[in-house]
């Protein structure tokens, strides 16, 4: 029987079973079991209250959102022109740009992050060059602070934005741009009135996916951040690993999961628009 005749649910079944088996069930088990062991609803509420309104979680949530926001904006600003170049490039140029973007994914996060340490450290390459040229007299603190976290995360997340924008830009009919030009628009007007609106849904989807990924970040801020750059995922890891306070970890996980799911709902709306072509 040709694959096309099978009902969609049957084709999805293996992936769905895998998702349920290795992801939903364990995470559900973890959340329910951990929170249940607190006891009565009153006791659970007491712990939820204690966890959510402790300064730590509030602080981490503020950090998480702020870092996520800054990184997302940076990734957008850097990614937009790169995506444009990628969407217009052909042949070798296309392969080269794409390779530069995805190549980092062939190395592990740890190796990549250590490479950043070599570059950004107090005695790292960048500081040595800047000191050598006399541009600065004291080494810049590029690592173990928020700058470091933002640099590291921007780098890791760039491909997600670029590939999302690429899809949106590739779908733009180039003849529309030429038409606009023919109707008297300047290059800036062509961009602002035609290209930007036609790729807006891509921008929104890219921003959401980047932000969703950013707020779950753990390794990069842990390795490249300073003492106060604690994001919510790090706090969860600490509760699980260090203090074995699984209920607290579960409560924080629910918070992160809720935020992520809400954003994901928005994302799927806009990525749906991406597939269906531009909608006003």
């Amino acid at each position: 029987m040709p694959l096309g005749r099978l009902p969609a649910w049957l084709l999805l079944a293996p992936a769905l079973l895998l998702l349920i088996g290795v992801f939903l069930v364990p995470i559900g088990w973890f959340l329910v079991a951990s929170i249940m062991e607190l006891g009565t609803p009153a006791e659970i509420w007491e712990e939820v209250d204690a966890v959510l309104f402790s300064g730590a979680v509030a602080g981490a949530l503020i950090n998480t959102n702020w870092i996520g926001l800054v990184v997302t904006l940076l990734v957008l600003v850097i990614g937009y022109p790169v995506s444009y170049a990628l969407s217009r490039a052909k042949g070798v140029a296309f392969t080269l740009i794409l390779l530069c973007i995805v190549l980092p994914y062939f190395t592990s996060t740890i190796v990549r992050t250590y490479a950043w340490m070599v570059l950004l450290g107090r005695n790292g390459l960048i500081n040595q060059v800047l000191l050598g040229t006399g541009l600065i007299s004291e080494p810049l603190n590029l690592l173990y602070n928020r700058t470091g976290v933002v640099i590291g995360m921007t780098y890791v997340l760039l491909p997600y934005m670029v590939l999302t924008l690429y899809a949106a830009m590739k779908a733009v009919d180039m003849r529309l741009l030429q038409a606009a030009e023919g109707m008297g628009a300047t290059p800036l007007q062509v961009f602002l009135r035609v290209f930007a609106p036609l790729t807006l849904h891509g921008v929104i989807a890219g921003v959401l996916i980047t932000f969703i990924l950013a707020i779950g970040f753990f390794v990069t801020p842990a390795l490249m951040g300073g003492p106060s750059d604690i994001m919510i995922a790090m706090l969860i890891e600490r509760e699980v690993e260090l203090t074995q306070n699984w209920p607290a970890a579960a409560i924080m996980t629910v918070v992160l999961l809720t935020v992520t799911l809400i954003l994901y709902g928005l994302y799927s709306r806009f990525s749906g628009a991406l597939e269906g072509g531009a909608k006003p």
Binding site: A56, S228, L242
Partner: peptide
């Protein structure tokens, strides 16, 4: 006391 220290530390470190 690790639990207690952890929370106090997290608050302190993010200040």
């Amino acid at each position: 006391n690790r639990d207690r220290v952890n929370r106090a530390w997290s608050r302190w470190v993010m200040r």
